[in-house]
Amino acid sequence: MLAIETDALSKDYLVGFWRPRPYRALHDLTLAVEHGDIFGFLGPNGAGKSTAIKLLMQLVFPTSGQARILGQPLGDLAVKRRIGFLPENPSFYDYLSAEELLTYFAGLFGIPAAERAARVASVLDRVGLGAERRSRLRSYSKGMVQRVGIAQALINEPDVVFFDEPMSGLDPIGRREIRQLMLDLRARGTTVFFSSHILSDAEALCSQVAIVAQGRLVATGKVSELLSEDQHGWEVVVDGLPATALPQVGARARACTLVHDGRHLLEFAPGDPAELVRLMTEAGGRIVSLHAQRETLEAFFVRRVAAAAVRGAAEP
């Protein structure tokens, strides 16, 4: 059984006041998310990420297609007990404190009154909200509201969590904390489904990603698989390469740059890295680092999105 599956999920919104026309926000989205994964749902702003998550949360209803969470159709209250949701740019009640808000939500999950206070305190600790948890939400900064949003998504110790842009509004330290939190969740066996338009988050966290652009799924798979097809060379940093060996080694390389005295950065075409190591040592150099030169997710993303845009323009 999959944690989340969607089957040709589509959503049309009606736009225009006088003569509403359907606008397709999401087109035939088919996804499968395994248990215990951190699944990155990536795409530029306006690609349909939030629409997909709202469909899964039943905040909007699909025009066609279907979806299941934990093997159950959407809207099942028993499933809702086992999931958590952080909306994009969340907003709560101005006049409640974080503690009261979480106590309220804990009540909605039917968590017994005796456990509520401890549960609330523990999730607020996990997102790093200190004494300010007792003041009203209206006085919170955007980053603090974001942390409250993450806390409320975890109040029921969910099996599946949906985070819509979890990093937005956070400073670099906050981002690192939330990354760690997501890794901890995975360690406990929780499935994490998060959307982002920032690829470094996904590279650092995800085993699986899906990329959407203009309402369509453009790629899906393991980060490593999606990227291996794009491996296009090696990058070697060497120290102490004698000037005499340089022309010979340089002839093999695609590029050769002097970094500073005695240290060179060399780029090679794809091939066996062992051979490169031998070449360097025989020439008398000392290898500082050897990197696979691959397309970043960022570049990949740009290329895929551009391709989708071309396709989108070709078929109106």
Partner: peptide, 14 residues
């Protein structure tokens, strides 16, 4: 309008 409803409706509440 403020979208505070999103979080509530994702809880087990019809």
């Amino acid at each position: 309008e403020r979208r505070s409803i999103y979080a509530v409706l994702s809880k087990p509440v019809t």
